[in-house]
Amino acid sequence: MSDNLARAPRPNWATEPAAAVEERRHIEIVSSSSQRRARPKIVYALSAVTGVSLIVLAQLLLSVGISQSAYEVSRLQASQVELGRTAESVTEDLVRSSSPQSLAANAEALGMVSNSNPVYLRLSDGAVLGAPASAAGSQGGAASLVPNSLLAGVPLVTQLPQGSGQGASVGGAVAPAAAPAAAPVASTATPNGLPTPATR
């Protein structure tokens, strides 16, 4: 590194004070190159400020995002709770409908009869096991003797109005098909305990 510094002779204050005042030359300390290099540059300051503001901005956006998501989460949680309630209440309806009392009452309303005289056909030799006999009639008659207060007010499939809602459409589809099939059975079978399809 070459020495290109400006050199100024040091004024001699002691010997020539008058001359010094008179001349009053502009002097300054010239910083060395290492000093100049050590001096903070504007670009650093700028980058630091930019960085800080970027971080602040990012944090701001992030927190906006988080709080936005909080609303989203809150909304979804509320809808999950609602859906859970719906699922629970629908399951409850299903379980109630599949109770033996409900199934038996509906089966009887559709003209079905339980036969407790099983007969088996053995495939290996075609033997008939058991003694065939006609059904003695529906079990216990029309009224269920095993109460279930949950079923109070729940209509039978045959009592549902046709074409209103999903449940009714099932009942409506089954009922007409069952009616002609059940009628001849009812006329020939034992009269006691059998539901009369004519009531429908």
Binding site: E92, S99, Q101, V146, P147
Partner: peptide, 8 residues
């Protein structure tokens, strides 16, 4: 508590 099958 609920008893889906009632008195069963």
């Amino acid at each position: 508590r609920v008893y889906p099958d009632g008195a069963v």
